[in-house]
Computed example of a mutant assay.
Amino acid sequence: MSSLSIRPVSSKPDRKAFIDLAYRLNGDDPNWVAPLRDEVASTIDPAKNGWFSHAEAQLFLAERDGKVIGRISAHIDRLALEMPPEQGFGPGTGFFGLYEAEDRETSDALIARAEQWLRDKGMARAIGPVSLSIWEEPGLLVKGYDHPPTVLMGHHPPRYRDWIESAGYAPVKKLVTYELDITGPFPPLIQRVIAAGHKNKRIHIRQVDKKRFAEEAAIILGILNDAWSDNWGYVPLTQPEIDDVGKKLKPLVYEDLIRIAEYDGEPVAFMITLPDFNEALKPLKGSLFPFGWAKLLLWLRKPKAVTMRVPLMGVVKRLQSSRLASQLAFMMIELIRIEAVKHYGSSRGEIGWILDDNQGMIAIADAINSRINREYLIYAKPL
């Protein structure tokens, strides 16, 4: 009779097996985009992921008859422990993530092992899947299986939802993404709002300067941590994380696609847009060899992307209830829309993820005729 075992990842071969499993289990899904193996390896390497400066994680493998059939991470974010409980995390909250399983029995055993690790660390509640940081790939896909994810978004088999819920987890937050046609102008009312903004001499919308990358990143980080500080699930984004993400994303930074809004000379809002790197990545199936590296270099030099993704935008907290906040957002969106169509051949935009109770962002998405195309659930369970 076959036996199932769960063991901690403890060696380089174990880490390779942990990474490789996702490619075997998801390889037949036409909408799964295989990440570059080196990028996944960096995510789980404390020396290459700044998140580990305030967090710890244990990876586990599931095996049956010597074959790896599942994986999971159990992790604790010390900054998340310091957050107010009413914002989602707080004392006693641990996480699981990087979850993949071949069958329900394996899923149950993996989740139970992750929970036990968290209990042994003094945690009283588990939240997941969060892989690994809330700023990376949070949530389980529950709507949008019929199309590939955009850059930095997750994609999961439908069966995982039932397995996680049957293990006693209940949804605590929904994250959504919105898609929209960007080939034409926005509705007349929005055009008037944008036109009025351009006439206001107190407003200046500028491109970022890639030659001042560190300085621009610091400006955006300051706005981000202020703008998002009251949101559910907020954990401060730290400088080590910014440094590592900067190294990873710098090749995808195009000055005309990232904007900073200034009011009376003060930076008060930003919008980051990325060409959908997954469009170039998908045909490579996770490997740069033999010719994948050359194809990616050519694409990065002058990308053509059907889709542009807006992963992050924010307005300083003191302006969030004002009309100026939405005006600045519409102005940045329109400026980037024009550049995306003209210089990158784009026809589609995707905004998010967005918390499903973020009324300000939802109102902006609705005003420019966007529609929800993907939904993710974050689950919780008392331990």
Rank of each mutant, 00 (worst) to 15 (best):
I134C: 04
L152D: 07
D146E: 13
I111Q: 01
A167T: 07
L175C: 00
L110C: 11
L132G: 01
M153E: 09
I190S: 01
D108I: 08
E179K: 05
E165N: 10
L180W: 08
H155V: 07
D181S: 12
V193F: 14
P188Q: 11
H155M: 09
Q116H: 15
Y160V: 02
G128S: 00
E136N: 15
W117T: 00
E137W: 11
E105W: 06
I127D: 09
G168H: 07
P157G: 05
P185A: 13
H155T: 06
G168N: 05
R159H: 13
D108K: 10
L141P: 00
W135V: 00
W117A: 01
P149Q: 09
G168F: 08
I127H: 01
E137G: 07
H147W: 11
V172D: 01
F186P: 00
G154T: 15
R159N: 13
G168L: 11
G144D: 03
P187T: 11
P138D: 06
D162W: 11
A114C: 13
V130F: 02
P149C: 03
L132N: 00
L132K: 03
S166M: 12
K143V: 11
P129V: 05
L110R: 06
V176P: 01
P149V: 01
I127G: 02
V193W: 07
A167G: 06
H155F: 07
D120G: 08
P149R: 05
Q116T: 15
W163F: 09
K174G: 01
E136T: 15
S107T: 06
P187F: 12
K173Y: 09
L140D: 02
L175H: 00
I182D: 05
L118R: 03
Y145S: 07
V172N: 06
G154R: 11
A170F: 12
G122T: 08
E137N: 13
G122V: 10
L118G: 03
K121R: 15
G128P: 02
D162L: 10
R159V: 04
D146L: 12
L141G: 06
R159A: 12
A124R: 15
W135I: 01
S133Q: 09
R192I: 14
H147D: 12
A114N: 04
I134P: 00
V176K: 04
S166C: 08
I127L: 03
P149E: 10
W135N: 04
G154H: 08
D162F: 08
G184N: 11
